[in-house]
Simulated scan of single mutants.
Amino acid sequence: MTVNLLDYDLEGLTLYCERLGEKRFRATQLFRWIHQRGASKFDDMTDLARSLREKLSASAQVKPLDILSQHISSDGTIKWLFDVGNGDAVEAVFIPEKDRGTLCISSQAGCAVGCRFCSTGHQGFSRNLRAGEIISQLWFAEHFLRSHLKQCDRVISNVVMMGMGEPLQNYSELVPALRVMLDDHGYGLSRRRVTVSTSGVVPMMDRLALDCPVALAVSLHAPNDELRSNLVPLNRKYPIEELLAACNRYLAHAPRDFITFEYCMLDGVNDQVEHANQLVSLIRQHASGRVWCKFNLIPFNPFPASGLLRSPIEQVNVFAKILSDAGIVTTVRKTRGDDIDAACGQLAGDVQDRTRVQSRIARQRTIMLTPIPPTAKPNLEK
């Protein structure tokens, strides 16, 4: 059976090469060709022995996801739609800023959590992505952007697992993908610059702290269990006190000394002064005399099925000031990619019944906005 080498972290690729009768250092060479240089054809890997290239051609491939469409926003944000087969598609979004380039990656086709304010959740859940399908989004985006921006240096400095899906419900495939991102022979990203966002899968938070501690963002969205259970159904299984205790445990292993709490601002629902004061009280109860978290207030991106509205900016500012005055580091997220539905919570595109996804993909194939040039293969070493 032909294997896809994008599914392997360096340890897995080393074991594969050993099964072929090759020395361990060949795996490192191969890993660099795939991830640092963006090579997908074994004949292009010129410093590998011909005998190894022949073995690889007979039993393996480097097969990235097919691209269905690419949309470029007026603010420079780029959204890609990837075909993952059987009528399913996932999206990744690149967000350029002066001091960094951030790629938002999907971990599942759809999402089973069903948060009220997230259009992706209203799409429904189809399946988990394999490790190679997760890393393929980074593989394509990095090497496309080098060609698109005409540079050989690394373009993507930050990766956030905040696309479609709940990453910690796809744990066994998430961790190998994270290890490829962090590996110096792969993308060489710092643990501080790779963030996993979770709605609060407490047991997997504890496992991630031990297996592959990266930066952690937690979708909080409410200061009490009654409201959070209404907005984030997973709260019924892992209530706020349990979640915050897990956050404190995670800090002992985290590359940063704080957890980021994401808080989607919903008009008249969770954005009142009383909610801000409840949050201050909640955070202080778990502070133990230290600054241990920061808040990222997220403007809601309305969609018809939600029945929710975006909080007025004046109310957001009042809310943020209460948190800041209490000594809690608070930022208001700037919306990006609104014109291409790439903003937070919009990664499902048009919300549709699962039976109609195939027709959506067929339609996407016909509206490619920007031709995608061949993947760049600069001669780049870490």
Rank of each mutant, 00 (worst) to 15 (best):
A177N: 06
R154L: 05
N317K: 12
C115T: 06
S324P: 07
R363G: 13
W80N: 07
E97Q: 15
E97W: 10
F140R: 04
F300L: 00
C293Y: 05
P96L: 06
H221S: 08
T120Y: 00
T330E: 03
T335N: 07
A92T: 02
I95F: 11
F117M: 05
V155N: 00
T355M: 10
A131V: 04
V202S: 01
K23V: 10
I67V: 13
Q108I: 09
K79H: 02
L81M: 12
A343Q: 02
A89D: 08
R130W: 04
V232R: 01
L65E: 08
Q346S: 02
P374E: 15
S172M: 15
S147I: 08
L309Y: 06
I105C: 13
K41E: 15
F94P: 00
W139D: 11
D271Y: 04
E226T: 12
N230W: 04
D267I: 00
S157Q: 11
S126I: 01
Q346M: 11
K237W: 11
V3Y: 01
F319V: 05
P176A: 01
W292P: 09
L149F: 04
C152M: 14
G121C: 06
E18K: 15
L309A: 15
V93T: 02
F94G: 00
V84T: 02
D184Y: 12
K321S: 13
S59A: 12
V196P: 08
M164D: 02
L30E: 00
F258L: 14
G87F: 04
Y16E: 14
L65I: 04
Q346K: 06
G101V: 08
A27L: 05
P302L: 03
T28N: 07
A326W: 06
L52A: 04
A60T: 08
M181F: 03
L380A: 07
L369S: 15
R363C: 06
P378M: 14
I72A: 10
S288W: 10
D88E: 15
I361T: 11
L208R: 02
L347I: 05
I134Q: 00
L297P: 10
D353F: 09
D153G: 13
T2L: 14
R179N: 10
G101I: 07
L231E: 00
E381S: 10
M368V: 13
F31Y: 03
E173V: 03
D341S: 12
H253V: 07
V180Y: 02
P239W: 00
I78P: 00
P233G: 03
L178Y: 04
R179E: 14
N301I: 06
R365G: 08
S40D: 12
Y250I: 05
K294G: 15
K377M: 07
L323A: 05
Q61T: 14
